[in-house]
Design a protein around this nucleic acid. Structure first.
Lengths: 143, 143
DNA sequence: AGCACATAGTGCGTATGCTCAGCATATGCG
DNA sequence: CGCATATGCTGAGCATACGCACTATGTGCT
């Protein structure tokens, strides 16, 4: 009973923290024409070091295929990625970063890294491990 | 350096946990025609025990005024709340729960309570306090 | 009273995210 | 080979969330 009440507050704080953190990063990324969603897509393309199918991109980024379409549309509109027909599979596209996309990605990645480091500056290695463990225990119960 | 890398993973886990938790609750609420956003609005109206201005509702719910308009629109469309002109301030509306809205709120609140209790079942009082403290330390650095 | 300024709510536009339906194309099996 | 089935992507449509701009109204100051 009392426990239930406090778990509500706990979850509210979890939502609030995630939201604030996202805004924190989003605000800084916006100055470079990026965003969390766009960075995530660019990151997958940069890490793969090769063009990706829409499908693979969406799975690696952890988003729905339809969402990847929208994100790639916007990145393509801004000249940060290109869609090319897959040479073997005519249903598929290969998405690759343009030169400008590479530049944008590097800048956005740096901003992201700094913002996250700043946000977690008050946590030492033990704190981080502990937080990871606690979050993991919540995740295990939300299937 | 190594620390930076691990903070990335940490934040990803924070995002992931919040997302999963939200889906967990959202799925259960959908069966009753509710959602996290709708429940939040209904909760404010129920807690206030009186009709609220759009403005007050949005501030209490922690959402932008514009977002409150959309949520109240959808709740009104489904007959869960009513908008009434404010008797003293002709710019404002008063929003109040209907009978059906009260019923829906009670059911949704119960579902929410159970889902959150289930999600945090693996955490005891110390864990919760610790998690709250760690999240608080992140929030303090995201202004 | 009259004007400047603030406040309340919403239209318009945008971003992120989803599902479902549908078309085009691959693939596997008889 | 041909057909059933699976896969790849996107159109359509919805929900949540925001900011900006605008209208209507309230308020305070001279």
């Amino acid at each position: 009973m009392a426990v239930q009440g406090s778990s509500d507050i706990l979850i509210d704080e979890l939502y609030e923290t995630t939201y604030r953190l996202r805004q924190f990063v989003e605000t800084r990324l916006r100055e470079k024409g990026a965003s969390v969603a766009r960075l995530r897509a660019m990151r997958m393309l940069a890490q793969a070091r090769k063009p990706l199918r829409m499908r693979d991109l969406s799975e690696m980024a952890g988003i729905a295929a339809r969402t990847a379409t929208t994100i790639v549309d916007s990145l393509e509109r801004d000249g940060l990625v290109e869609r090319v027909r897959h040479p073997q599979d005519r249903r598929a596209f290969l998405v690759r970063l343009t030169e400008e996309g590479l530049r944008c990605h590097r800048e956005a990645e740096e901003i992201d890294r700094l913002a996250l480091a700043e946000a977690t500056a008050a946590l030492d290695a033990d704190d981080r491990a502990h937080l990871r463990a606690l979050l993991g225990r919540i995740r295990d119960h939300t299937v």
